[in-house]
């Protein structure tokens, strides 16, 4: 899942302070799950904006809405319709960056502003906590690392073992919060009886499948309309 954090309120306020009719639109998928951009956040942000801008003597109309996903045309069309029908002059989206782009590509002359900071692909690591688990490198190497990704979870993305900063299972970059992923990999491979594989050298990675190879697309020809 994509993880995002709410943007500092002041930033969002600054983006929209000169608009008259603003739509705050949430996304019902990843950002709802990670508590940053669902309907509840939409309502809270909208209320906050009304209060804060009201204090500045501005009283813009702040409208609210949430759609199931902002990364699919069919779900986004109602937002576009609202923008047109309700003469909205700016949109704040609480979807991840994907949603911001998706709307920007479709909103014509109406500006869209991000309401969250999109951070990583991660998973719930307990109540109110999410952790980065994958970096989307496009060529998964976890088969060699016990299913644990050193690219996403090592502060230095090391592929051949821990640096000298691994101490008591923690990463020197933030010993209180980050596990040394190489300790995890070591422990896991030990459990799997595959420790010897650690002696193999993982060669320099081909990063073309990651964003370094240019903007990526994913294709399922069998579903594409023939050209």
């Amino acid at each position: 899942m994509i993880i995002a954090d709410p943007k500092p309120f002041g930033q969002v306020k600054e983006y929209i302070k000169d608009y008259k009719r603003v739509l705050v639109v949430g996304c019902g998928t990843c950002v709802t799950v990670c508590l940053s951009g669902g309907e509840a956040e939409v309502q809270l942000l909208a209320s906050g904006l009304r209060i804060a801008l009201g204090k500045n003597g501005k009283n813009p109309v702040i409208l609210e809405g949430t759609v199931q996903r902002q990364c699919d045309e069919e779900f986004v069309v109602p937002v576009l319709d609202r923008v047109r029908d309700e003469r909205i002059d700016a949109v704040v989206t609480l979807a991840c960056g994907v949603g911001v782009n998706f709307l920007a590509d479709r909103l014509g002359s109406v500006p869209v502003f991000p309401g969250v900071d999109t951070t990583f692909y991660g998973a719930s690591a307990g109540q109110g906590l999410w952790a980065e688990l994958c970096a989307g490198c496009g060529n998964c190497i976890t088969a060699y690392t016990g299913g644990i990704c050193p690219i996403a979870r090592c502060s230095k993305h090391l592929l051949n073992g821990p640096c000298g900063g691994s101490e008591k299972g923690r990463c020197e970059v933030a010993p209180n919060s980050i596990d040394c992923v190489w300790q995890l990999i070591y422990d896991r491979l030990k459990k799997l009886g595959r420790l010897s594989e650690l002696q193999n050298l993982l060669p320099a990675k081909d990063w073309r499948t990651a964003s370094d190879g240019g903007v990526r697309r994913s294709v399922r020809e069998y579903l594409q309309e023939p050209k």
Partner: peptide
């Protein structure tokens, strides 16, 4: 290359040294 015999996991430290040598 550098080697740190004092970092963790301890048993891995020699393996890593060996890797550096073979590299």
């Amino acid at each position: 290359a550098a080697a740190n015999p004092f970092a963790d996991p301890f048993e891995f430290r020699v393996i890593r040294l060996a890797k550096k040598i073979s590299a």
